[in-house]
Deep mutational scan, measured.
Amino acid sequence: GQVHVGDTTYHFPNPEEARKFAEKAAKENNLQVTQHGNTFKVE
């Protein structure tokens, strides 16, 4: 799974890890998570 936060892309071998990371980043920054397959975008 990939997580895009601003201009930075994080790669995770496990989509579940990617999702947890995205949700945590979104919560900390008052942002939203959008999911496209195994790619998550925090914005």
Rank of each mutant, 00 (worst) to 15 (best):
G1N: 08
G1H: 12
G1Q: 05
G1D: 04
G1S: 14
G1K: 03
G1Y: 15
Q2F: 15
Q2R: 13
Q2Y: 15
Q2L: 14
Q2G: 03
Q2H: 13
V3L: 02
V3A: 04
V3P: 01
V3M: 02
V3F: 03
V3E: 01
H4K: 13
H4T: 14
H4N: 08
H4D: 07
H4L: 14
H4Q: 14
H4V: 15
H4F: 13
V5N: 03
V5Q: 04
V5H: 07
V5L: 13
V5M: 14
V5K: 04
V5F: 15
V5R: 04
G6W: 10
G6I: 05
G6L: 08
G6N: 09
G6A: 06
G6H: 08
G6Y: 10
G6T: 04
D7K: 13
D7T: 12
D7F: 11
D7A: 12
D7L: 11
D7Y: 11
T8L: 14
T8W: 12
T8V: 14
T8F: 13
T8S: 10
T8N: 11
T8I: 14
T9F: 09
T9E: 06
T9H: 07
T9G: 01
T9I: 15
T9P: 03
T9W: 14
T9V: 15
T9L: 12
Y10A: 00
Y10I: 05
Y10Q: 01
Y10L: 05
Y10H: 05
Y10N: 01
Y10K: 02
Y10G: 00
Y10F: 10
Y10E: 01
Y10W: 07
Y10T: 02
H11N: 10
H11M: 10
H11Y: 15
H11P: 03
H11A: 06
H11W: 14
F12R: 00
F12E: 01
F12N: 01
F12I: 01
F12L: 03
F12M: 03
F12W: 02
P13W: 07
P13N: 12
P13H: 09
P13I: 10
P13R: 11
P13D: 13
N14W: 03
N14M: 04
N14A: 04
N14S: 14
P15W: 14
P15H: 10
P15G: 08
P15Y: 14
P15R: 12
P15N: 07
P15T: 14
P15I: 15
P15D: 05
E16V: 07
E16H: 08
E16P: 03
E16A: 08
E16Y: 09
E16T: 08
E17C: 11
E17M: 12
E17F: 05
E17A: 11
E17G: 04
A18M: 00
A18N: 00
A18R: 00
A18D: 00
R19I: 04
R19L: 07
R19E: 04
R19V: 03
R19C: 08
F21Y: 07
F21E: 00
A22N: 01
A22I: 03
A22Q: 00
A22T: 01
A22P: 00
A22F: 02
E23N: 09
E23I: 12
E23Q: 10
E23C: 14
E23M: 13
E23L: 12
E23V: 10
E23Y: 14
E23R: 05
K24F: 11
K24H: 10
K24N: 10
K24V: 08
A25T: 14
A25S: 08
A25N: 06
A25V: 15
A25I: 15
A26S: 05
A26R: 02
A26H: 01
A26P: 01
K27R: 13
K27G: 07
K27T: 08
K27Y: 10
K27D: 06
K27A: 12
E28S: 08
E28Y: 10
E28H: 09
E28D: 11
E28V: 10
E28R: 11
E28L: 12
N29K: 12
N29Y: 15
N29V: 06
N29F: 15
N29H: 14
N29G: 12
N29P: 04
N29Q: 12
N29L: 15
N29D: 07
N30T: 05
N30P: 02
N30R: 08
N30Q: 08
L31A: 13
L31T: 08
L31S: 10
L31G: 13
L31Q: 07
L31W: 13
L31P: 02
Q32T: 14
Q32I: 15
Q32G: 07
Q32A: 10
Q32N: 10
Q32R: 14
Q32E: 08
Q32S: 12
V33K: 01
V33T: 03
V33Y: 09
V33L: 07
V33E: 01
V33I: 11
T34Q: 07
T34M: 07
T34N: 06
T34S: 09
Q35W: 07
Q35N: 06
Q35R: 13
Q35Y: 07
Q35P: 04
H36L: 12
H36D: 12
H36Y: 14
H36G: 04
G37L: 05
G37N: 06
G37A: 05
N38G: 05
N38S: 08
N38Y: 07
N38F: 07
N38H: 07
N38E: 05
N38V: 05
N38Q: 05
T39E: 10
T39Q: 09
T39D: 08
T39P: 02
T39I: 14
T39W: 07
T39G: 05
F40T: 02
F40Q: 02
F40Y: 10
F40W: 11
F40I: 04
F40R: 00
F40D: 02
F40V: 06
F40C: 03
K41W: 15
K41T: 15
K41D: 07
K41H: 15
K41M: 13
K41F: 15
K41E: 09
V42I: 09
V42G: 03
V42E: 02
V42F: 03
E43W: 14
E43F: 13
E43C: 14
E43I: 12
E43P: 04
E43S: 13
E43G: 14
